[in-house]
Computed example of a mutant assay.
Amino acid sequence: MSALTFQALRRLADGRFHSGEAMARELGRSRATLSEALKHAGDLGVELFSVPGRGYKLAEPIEFLDVASVSTMMGASASRVSLEIVDEVDSTSSRLLAMAASGAPAGTCLAAEWQSAGRGRRGRAWVGGLGGSLMFSLLWRFDRGVTHLAGLSLAVGLAVTRALRQCGVERAQVKWPNDVVVDFRKVGGILIETSGEMQGPSVAVVGVGLNYRLGDQLEKIDQPAVDVAGCASPVPSRNLVLARTLAELAGVLEAFEAGGFAPLRSEWRSLHAYEGRRVRVMPPNEAAYEADVVDVGEDGTLVVSAGGRSVRLSSAELAAIRPAGR
């Protein structure tokens, strides 16, 4: 996507009509070049109107992310995160992994308005639209080794859920091992990639994707899904949601470094959508079966009861759970 496309869309972000001639002049481009750049708006999930005599107008306003606004909203926590916002990237996690290999410090965060190759668990593509999602990755370094990072995805899910509740998504809950849901419908997902020595140090790149205002695009997601705009009234700003999420993540990651998942386990259980419920477990390459969720271990494994026996599921097994009968 060209930089001009994003520059033009930023000028149209208020949802009002803007003269194409005036925009082209402000951007130092010809009318024809501007028109060509705006033809790609649809590729970003943006509906654009072009009306002769009035100019261009977005069907809905877009709130772009802003580093200064996010930092102000984070308050004291802003000192623990170094945020960069880009218009477009293939994948924030892929880019941050490369930055980690070059020595980027803990707290380095990359957010993107658009990802051309965003990915989720099991290699699924992330469904999003310009202004309709929050997509970012956060780098964190641990003195502990990779083997001590068990339960990290659960800790991150707890931080995201806390943040969403602060922003008015009152029914946000965690779903083992790495989703955030509202009424059993997905509102966000987490993908964590780790590297390092067995005994330490280690590094984690925490990728987070949140459905903010997706509208009809929710139907493209391969499971029941909702967005923040449909779950909170009034709808919080994208910048506020990002600020609260980063602040909670910084605090939770520091707590995890000190004590692992164990100190967070009780709160996580209280917010688990499937706690005490009968579910359908669908492990990869194995037959699905029904079980009752019993507990979550201090190592982040999910404990279920099936056929009179206790079974521990680890995120490494990529076991997915659904409410029984669905």
Rank of each mutant, 00 (worst) to 15 (best):
M74V: 00
P234S: 13
G132F: 13
P201F: 13
V304M: 08
A319M: 03
E197R: 14
R280T: 15
K175T: 03
W126D: 05
T301A: 15
E60H: 12
E257D: 15
D183H: 14
V208C: 06
V160E: 08
E317N: 10
P61A: 06
V181I: 14
V46M: 14
V203M: 07
R10Y: 08
F256S: 03
G168C: 01
A320S: 14
L83H: 12
R171S: 15
T301W: 02
M99Y: 08
F17I: 04
R269F: 09
S237E: 09
L264E: 08
A159H: 07
E275W: 09
L264K: 04
W268C: 10
E275T: 04
A76S: 13
D66V: 00
W126S: 05
P284K: 09
A247V: 07
I62T: 02
F49E: 15
V296M: 10
M198I: 14
Q166E: 15
A59C: 12
W140N: 12
N239W: 03
F49Y: 13
W140L: 06
Q199F: 04
F261L: 15
F136I: 01
L139S: 10
H148F: 09
E257I: 02
A324P: 02
S77T: 11
S237D: 05
R244L: 12
V146K: 06
N178A: 10
V67G: 01
W176A: 01
L9N: 14
L246Y: 02
S79L: 10
E254P: 01
V81T: 06
A250Q: 08
N285L: 10
R265H: 05
